[in-house]
Computed example of a mutant assay.
Amino acid sequence: MNSQETKQMLKTMSLNMVKSEPLLTKVDQAIGDGDHGLGIERGFQNVYDMIDQGFEANNVGDVLTKVGTKLLTTMGGASGAIFGTLFRNGGKAVAGEPELTTPVVAEFWQLARRYS
């Protein structure tokens, strides 16, 4: 997938994360303070909006890094730190890559996990 296709995939993923808010909130109310779903919804709605507004990215690493930054700055809580750091570190690990291929995804997960 090139940068544009990667953005479309992340836009679709973000929409589905936003739609998961009621379930995530319900589950978190049973074991915690009930705000997990709201944080996920807020962060991924911001990612969806950023992509929908057509942000510029030079390569797939840049796309992933910018998504991570958006999550870090809008999601809040532990989830924002976890998801944001995952995408930022993974994006930096694949900086300059023109396409999201199987080896690039493997590198993303390996290095994102190592530094998260």
Rank of each mutant, 00 (worst) to 15 (best):
M1W: 14
M1Q: 15
S3W: 01
S3E: 13
E5Q: 13
T6F: 03
K7I: 02
K7H: 08
L10I: 00
T12Q: 12
M13D: 03
S14F: 04
L15Q: 12
N16G: 08
V18D: 07
K19H: 13
S20D: 09
E21R: 15
E21K: 15
E21C: 10
L24M: 14
K26F: 15
K26Q: 10
D28Y: 10
Q29G: 13
Q29F: 04
A30L: 12
A30G: 06
I31C: 02
I31T: 00
G32Y: 04
G34S: 03
H36F: 07
H36V: 01
G37A: 07
G37L: 06
G39F: 04
I40H: 02
I40K: 00
E41R: 03
R42E: 04
G43R: 00
Q45G: 00
N46W: 02
N46R: 11
D49K: 03
M50K: 12
I51F: 02
D52M: 10
Q53T: 05
G54C: 05
G54P: 00
A57E: 08
N58L: 05
N59Y: 09
G61C: 13
T65K: 01
T65Y: 08
T65E: 05
T65V: 07
V67P: 07
G68M: 08
K70S: 09
L72G: 13
L72C: 13
L72F: 00
L72H: 02
M75T: 10
M75D: 12
G77S: 13
G77C: 13
A78P: 01
S79I: 05
F83C: 09
F83I: 02
T85G: 14
E97C: 06
E97H: 04
E99M: 05
P103G: 01
E107C: 10
F108G: 01
Q110N: 13
L111D: 15
A112K: 05
R113V: 14
R113P: 02
Y115V: 02
S116V: 14
